[in-house]
Amino acid sequence: MKVAAIFINLAYFLLLAPFLEGVMRKLTARIQSRQGPPLYQPYLDLLKLLGKENIVSSKNWAFRLAPLLAFSSMLAVVLLVPLAGAENLLSHSSDLMTLIYLLTLSGFSILVGALASGNPFAGVGASREMMTIIMLEPVLAMTLILGAVKSESFTISSALSGIGRNHGFSYFLMLVVYLLALQAFVSRQPFDIPEAEVEILEGPYVEYSGPNYALFRYTLNIKRMFYAWLFVVSFLNFVPSGNFWLKLLLETAGILILFVLISVIGATHPRFRIDQAIKYYTLLVVLSLIAIGLGVKGW
């Protein structure tokens, strides 16, 4: 089971992530009074991208390595997490620090790829992406640390279940903060600033195309799904652990509901500027610090 869980993790995220993008696109389309693409469209997009020419504008290896590293570190993240409460073989060789740093690694490789392309738009995008990482990483870290503080353990599974252990002030504050930060985690409007299509043409990805871009897209899909999943397991963990498959089903339902929220918010907001976003993130950091403070005090 512990070995099988690795593959279940992998399959769950790899197979479901593009579908969730499809859900998001369909919902956004409905809010915009459009038909929208079919739900399976993201899979087709990925297949199409894989078959396209791989256009490379930079000769250095960092440019080629970046999509691989981004994709693999994101996959590493989803490998390590306890899906439906089931730990797998690899969960034990990691803890929260590993998780946080692996998430950062994924962002980091996007940056390296962007800078390697030499395109000024990618440069602007990389600069914005880095600023977002700097301001948002603490929020994510603090969410997890709240769990660690409550459960007095630094392992992933206990920290995740620890957040909802007692529904005190800290739990609710952190829940609000996480929801406020969610759009930024999944980089949708109003916080899709690093990719801002209208100004900087998808920013860091401007020079990427074909299979390389497919990897980045896939990474982004999995990242979005991961953040939604994280919210479901850490804040909505009401179901007592029981049947693995039932739990998995419930988690999936939670993720779907969260994606509805993400799509609705994304479709009803303009994109912020990076300076406005940084101010907003600062507020989130302060709020989550307060939440941690409350958590430490046992509230």
């Binding site: 894989l50 020419e53 256009i55 490379v56 000769k59 691989l68 395109n119």
Partner: peptide, 13 residues
Amino acid sequence: RQSAGSAEVTVPV
């Protein structure tokens, strides 16, 4: 990345 066997093309930025 290579599953579809796409060719690599080098172009300027």
